[in-house]
Amino acid sequence: MKQLITLRVNGIDEELYVEPWWTLSRVLREELDLIGTKEGCGSGDCGSCTVLIDGKAVMSCLYLAMKARGKNIMTIEGLNGENGALHPLQETFIEHFAVQCGYCVPGMIMTAKAMLDENPKPTEEEVRTGLSGNLCRCTGYVKIVEAVLSSAEKQGN
């Protein structure tokens, strides 16, 4: 039976009815129309569904919506820079041509954000390890890693 719950998504409290077995990715995409978050594998392997929960990267395809009550959920739609500009990660992904089909990008960027929040000056090796749960079938990763490193540099200034 559906239950009425409140989810705090990108700073807004959303009231909605959910089935207890609905995953967060499904609720974000199908109930809240936040389709920036992608679902690739549905099994935790590809990272395209990554969102931040209380600042930590989480695979939303394996995470029950019921578990997300009372927490701060942030999706790619909630990410922005100062005064509504693009976030530095979004800018550097564009500058470095780190986007081809784009399917992996929201997950990549959310994971990169969680990583840089924790470790603002990562080495290339740390970026590669940090993003190892996010698969990209287009870019070959080089430009994505460059974009994340360049964003770290920008944010450091």
């Binding site: 935790g44 990272g47 930590k56 990267a57 695979m59 994971t111 969680a114 990583m115 940090g130 749960g133």
Partner: peptide
């Protein structure tokens, strides 16, 4: 064990 996002949960 797994990726950072798996280890977080």
């Amino acid at each position: 064990l797994g990726s950072m996002a798996i280890r977080n949960v």
